[in-house]
């Protein structure tokens, strides 16, 4: 057991020098009327420069909380109560609010799900850019507007649209505006939280391809958060799966579908009917995600897991009482599952 742990630590240390953002055993709690709710439970994750890391999971799994923690925009009743968030090796927790203000948007920026929530409906688009840029640097208005035009062109919108109001643009264009704003200060990491969920499939693909191209041109990393795992399979470099506040599996995107091991991941993969290829009755995952105020003991997925062993099997006690830990099972592939650990699956 210790040998494996040491190996883990060594690998972590090795990667620490590479990682742009590193979460080590992050814990985020909410104070809810019914008690403490642990939204993020000892999550460790690295994001290296220039890579696209996808974080997939369903409602309540904690992925948005992770994003908010990295952006340092968590507000009470949510609090980071454990672990570290390292940006380029330095811990963000405990930094002064002035430091954090400069960090936000300059080093890490965020694209939210609904552009309409992020754009002021009574201001012209260009003015919103100007507002944002001048909050971070002294720049004359004319120059800021010129930069805004450039940024719009960068994301495929006619630069003259700086004079438009948000409601004059289509949904896809508004989302592009948000992406342009997120790139304005050339951050090293862009967090995208369900950026295309509200858009149609065609626009979604266009935008994602643009983001890909921009990433290659400008060299930023992306943390892409979504419930749509099939998007990540095509778009991400590495994928992490979250369930009930925990990270249950991480692996490279290439070959993900074939090599996934965690029962929840497999269940998720089996929830997307194929558009091509043979068609058969699918099962999805029975049951519902757990109440985070009273999560199941042991492995959080065990009430819904088709592989959870019956009561007399020796592993059953572990599954219901002991939380599985992420263990390396292949190159860059980590799974938190007792069954995988035990060699049966």
């Amino acid at each position: 057991m210790t040998g494996v742990l040491e190996g883990e630590m060594q690998e972590l240390r090795r990667q620490a020098t590479d990682a742009l953002v590193e979460l080590r055993d992050l814990v985020v709690d909410y104070a809810a009327p019914e008690g403490r709710v642990r939204a993020v439970d000892h999550v460790s994750l690295e994001i290296r420069p220039g890579e696209i890391v996808g974080l997939a999971g369903e409602s309540g799994c904690g992925k948005t909380t992770v994003a908010n923690a990295i952006m340092q925009i968590l507000r009470p009743p949510a609090r980071v109560t454990g672990g570290r968030i390292l940006f380029q090796g330095e811990d963000l927790i405990g930094r002064s609010s002035e430091d954090l203000r400069r960090y936000r948007w300059r080093n890490v920026s965020m694209v939210f799900q609904s552009a309409m929530n992020a754009l002021n409906p009574v201001m012209r688009v260009g003015d919103q850019f100007v507002d944002m840029m001048r909050a971070h640097e002294r720049i004359p208005r004319r120059d800021a507007l010129a930069r805004a035009e450039e940024l719009l062109e960068l994301v495929g919108i006619d630069g003259r649209r700086v004079r438009a109001y948000p409601h004059e643009l289509s949904g896809g264009m508004r989302q592009r505006v948000i992406i342009a704003m997120a790139l304005a200060l050339r951050p090293e990491l862009v967090i995208m939280d369900e950026p295309t969920t509200a858009l149609d499939v065609v626009v979604q693909r266009e935008i994602l391809q643009e983001v890909d191209a921009l990433k290659r041109e400008l060299g930023f990393a992306v943390l892409f958060i979504t419930h749509d795992l099939s998007l990540l399979l095509e778009f991400a470099d590495r994928i992490g799966i979250m369930y009930a506040g925990e990270l249950v599996e991480t692996a490279p995107a290439r070959g993900f579908a074939e090599e996934a091991l965690h029962p929840y991941t497999l269940g998720l993969l089996r929830s997307f009917p194929p558009v091509t290829g043979p068609l058969e009755r699918m099962k999805g995952i029975p049951g519902t995600p757990p109440d985070l105020a009273k999560p199941p003991s042991g492995c959080r997925f065990h009430p819904r897991c088709p592989h959870c062993l019956p009561e007399d099997a020796p592993l059953h006690a572990r599954q219901t009482q002991e939380r599985p830990v992420l263990r390396e099972v292949g190159a860059g592939h980590r799974v938190a599952c007792h069954l995988v650990e035990a060699g049966t699956s």
């Binding site: 289509s170 499939v201 993969l269 091509t276």
Partner: peptide, 23 residues
Amino acid sequence: RLLLSAVPDAGRSREAFARAPRR
């Protein structure tokens, strides 16, 4: 055809998607 090529599908490789002209 456009819809079909735009749908994310685990079964397909990362192919280039014919970028439609600006809407």
